[in-house]
Design a protein around this nucleic acid. Structure first.
Lengths: 115, 115
DNA sequence: CTGAATCCAGTCGGATACTG
DNA sequence: CAGTATCCGACTGGATTCAG
């Protein structure tokens, strides 16, 4: 398969496994979204509250992207405050070990800095 | 510690372990650089060759950033083609399990798509 | 509450040319 | 070989506003 030749598209660097998964996690907030969905389905507002300082616009954009990459599913609930519920797909869950590993490193770094 | 209030700085989203490590890996190529350094020290040109389609400018920028974050060390060799050797620090090596996990997912995805 | 639209700034990355 | 300097397009994300 010839590489898709796109100009200025940071999302498709080389064709290697690592870039493959990095492309899935595109956007600074994507990993966080997945992370906060790992415990189970969450609603938009909950996620927004979970993830400190994320703007609605970005959260929405990330969710739509993750949905388009089949990492997340969206289920609209027609309750009477309208709401939507997001959940991880199997593929999304496959990223959890990697994200967990990243979080572990971050924790170490933070702990080290605090001490 | 009050959060540093910066505008439009994608590199410091919230203060959580996950973002901590994502900040270390900032830049689409950073994980690849670390990945290709995992087997041992490499020279600039080698890295450039290892990592398909990375430009010298970006590789240079990534290496300097990774160096400033203490993930990578740079050692100038005054041989007579001048050369430089880059290597992972301990901190850099700590990211390897996470990067490995990401690569594993990418591999799975690629294999699945190929079949 | 959900989430799309607009406006705007900062950053990343590619191409190219050039220095030591 | 190892970088740096420009120029430039693209994308991300923040703030605000608005609609269903």
């Amino acid at each position: 398969m010839g590489l898709p030749v796109r100009k200025n598209n940071a999302s498709i660097p080389p064709t290697c496994p690592l870039s493959e998964s990095m492309a899935l996690l595109r956007g600074a907030w994507a990993p966080n979204v997945i992370w906060y969905l790992s415990a189970g389905p969450r609603r938009f507002g909950e996620l927004r509250h979970d993830i400190p300082r994320i703007s609605a616009r970005v959260l929405s954009a990330r969710l739509r992207e993750l949905e388009s990459r089949s990492l997340v599913t969206r289920r609209a609930l027609d309750s009477s405050p309208p709401s939507a519920e997001y959940a991880l797909t199997e593929l999304g869950r496959e990223l959890l070990p990697a994200i967990q590993a990243l979080a572990n490193v971050g924790e170490k770094v933070m702990a080290r800095r605090a001490s």
